[in-house]
Design a binder for these strands. Sequence first.
DNA 1: ATTTGTGCAAACACTTTGCATTGTA
DNA 2: TACAATGCAAAGTGTTTGCACAAAT
Lengths: 153, 153
Amino acid sequence: MKSVLLEKSKKHLRAQGGRMTAQRRLIVETLSSLDTHPTAEEVYRIAREKDSTLHLSTVYRTLRWLEQEGLIASRLFDDERRQERFDATDHNEHYHFMCNSCKKVIEFDTLLVNTIKAQFELHSGAQVESGSVVLYGTCADCRKQIFAAEQPD
Amino acid sequence: MKSVLLEKSKKHLRAQGGRMTAQRRLIVETLSSLDTHPTAEEVYRIAREKDSTLHLSTVYRTLRWLEQEGLIASRLFDDERRQERFDATDHNEHYHFMCNSCKKVIEFDTLLVNTIKAQFELHSGAQVESGSVVLYGTCADCRKQIFAAEQPD
DNA sequence: ATTTGTGCAAACACTTTGCATTGTA
DNA sequence: TACAATGCAAAGTGTTTGCACAAAT
């Protein structure tokens, strides 16, 4: 159960005279044990099962630090205006689908975004540095459930 | 200075027994006079020049109503976590570029998003209902300025 | 005359911050 | 031992809501 994120965090901490505390370890391990895109609250709730003295502000501070270090990313989805989700994925640019019904986030990749960027640059004279794509809809699982619920017997 | 949005608003109000108040008219006119994607605060600030008794909560209520009616859309951009921007554009799905330096929002269109959607659907079994694309970078104007600043004389 | 909409102030939800204390290096 | 990090509580920020009053139909 060794985590790439944990190792990277240690390295970054060492490089800047930071300290690897029990809380940071717990938060990082919790985050990398989840393959979802959890909110700070979700990380907090799960981590607290192992250390009930952990405080939400520590979770925020740690997530924010990880973000600044470029080790995780934070994202907002349209239907959750207030609440950020944290993305521990270590591969670089990728895109997201969010299920309107179960709120699951699925990552995907496509080369077409590069084409979109190039087209826009050509058109506008702008220089594009990054891009975000979020698709919304109903995931396969939820479609199945909905279908099952619609069938009489 | 007649506004399509105002006409539509009137129609929707009529259809549901709502009332066209001075405030609603002012907010709608302010919004459609701007070709930017203003925040609620920006709408409020500008509208208040014409009616200093207008209250921010009324602006929110009106914007929210317009959104529910499908007459405007609200969006969040990555670098403005908390604050929504409102988009009075009346053509349907379109995409955005935001300049990292002047925060200007430029709309654009592309057919490639449909391909991305179709690819993802095929792949995942999900059904995609909508999609958002936001590119970030430096707009043509800002690039020019930066270039000029870099030249010696 | 109704009954919707507004101003206002207070509540909300998520996130951040200040400070005394704890714990790592 | 020094000083970074935590717990806690309080503040902050953008947005929403309840209610008494005002105004549109």
